[in-house]
Amino acid sequence: MLRQIKKKLTGAAAILLIVPAMGAGSASAQSADKTQEGIDDYRQMLSDGGNPGDLLVDTGKELWLEKKGPKDASLETCDLGLGPGVVKGAYAQLPRFFQDADKVMDAETRIMYCMENLQGIDSKDITSTVFSKSGDISTDWEAIVAYVANESSGIAMAAPQKHAAEKAAYERGQKIFFHRSGPYDFSCATCHGASDKRIRLQNLPDLLNAKDAQQAYTTWPGYRVSQGVVRTMQWRLQDCFRQQRLPKLKFASQASIDLLTFLAVKAKEGKMAAPGIKR
């Protein structure tokens, strides 16, 4: 019950906060710079007043500890790469190679692996409910990922590049980043391969530049103000590909893991600050 209220609250907070933002937008008669200033002020205001995404972190922790699934087990003993039960600092060292699964996994793929193996939940039941609809309340999934990422707050990104599979994932991720295809000829690099670019008013991080890559990577999952929910990295990638006019990126797919490996390594040394606040 308390959990439902918390999730609803994040939605309500968004509505309250969007109103002043819209006012700022229409009043800004001058330039895009002014509007950008408004957005920056608004972000500042949001972080001063408390990020609605922070509420979800507590919910995520409750869910992490809750016994669930056919095996009636919690996720407490999940090995996120730093040993069973270690959540602190784990997100900052993902994606990484896991011996037990014999593959590289990003945070979300690994959490799903734990749900399947520890709790006995079918992956199909997980993947169909991971992302909330815009304006809806955040899903349990989004809460759990927010919790896990938050446990790395202030910790520097250090996705390993030791295992051959980790190196190969990076290499493929790099190729996917530059892969132009589809009717619009877009690749990730079309929007994220040069500095100081914007789509409309939205700043585009140059993900080939360490500073931008760090800022972007470390603030996902993020509370998406325009949608009133916390979004995860897997969602971010899927929605980028949608706008690239490509088919639907499968959740926890190899391409998503490869791309996240590339991006995480680019963000090396950036300090985790998730959940962040997004437009």
Partner: peptide, 24 residues
């Protein structure tokens, strides 16, 4: 197990892409 996952040739990338998307 690891054979497709330690390769990073253009063909490997195409295979990964094809297996990673669903048509809509």
């Amino acid at each position: 197990f690891a054979q497709p996952l330690t390769g990073a040739s253009d063909e490997d990338v195409m295979t990964v892409l094809k297996n990673s998307f669903s048509p809509v």
